[in-house]
């Protein structure tokens, strides 16, 4: 059986046939895409410094993303005990943070620093943080 073809952010379908150990569980999906519970983080030389979070379940959403620390050097998001439990994370587990990039029709890009994706690579679990208060904007201009 061939791997499903998935539309990628670089607008070419590529085969996504991830190894089981590369699949990240998002038990509640992402807001707006609650039915997509499995994602992989993909990167390609020609897309760096952007990567993307590719959904494996219908409707297979692909989110462009970037390390928020590349956008704002001192970016910090505080997680509560319930958040750590959702990630099955120990205190000392290093976490991977990704901020979703939106590209507008005028080819400008913004980064969602308000609601980042957080992943615990040790357990391969993630979710999108939906803080009710945040210092960071939903649409931070993407520029260096």
């Amino acid at each position: 059986m061939s791997a499903p073809e998935i539309e990628t952010p670089v607008n070419e379908p590529i085969d996504v046939n991830p190894r089981a150990e590369d699949v990240i569980a998002f038990p509640t999906g992402l807001p707006g895409f609650e039915s997509c519970r499995r994602f992989v983080v993909m990167s390609r030389e020609d897309a760096a410094p952007l990567c993307w979070l590719q959904g494996l379940d219908e409707p297979r959403p692909a989110f462009l993303a970037i390390d928020p620390a590349l956008v704002l050097e001192n970016y910090r998001m505080r997680l509560g005990p319930a958040d750590h439990q959702r990630l099955d994370a120990r205190e000392d587990d290093p976490l991977l943070w990704l901020a979703i990039v939106t590209i507008a029709s005028d080819d400008t890009a913004t980064v969602n620093l308000r609601a980042p994706i957080v992943i615990n690579p040790r357990r391969m679990m993630g979710f999108q943080v939906v803080p009710h208060e945040s210092l960071y904007p939903l649409r931070h201009p993407l520029s260096f």
Partner: peptide
């Protein structure tokens, strides 16, 4: 915002 992000209207 997530729904806008997956549409990627620009280049």
């Amino acid at each position: 915002e997530n729904e806008v992000a997956v549409r990627r209207s620009g280049d």
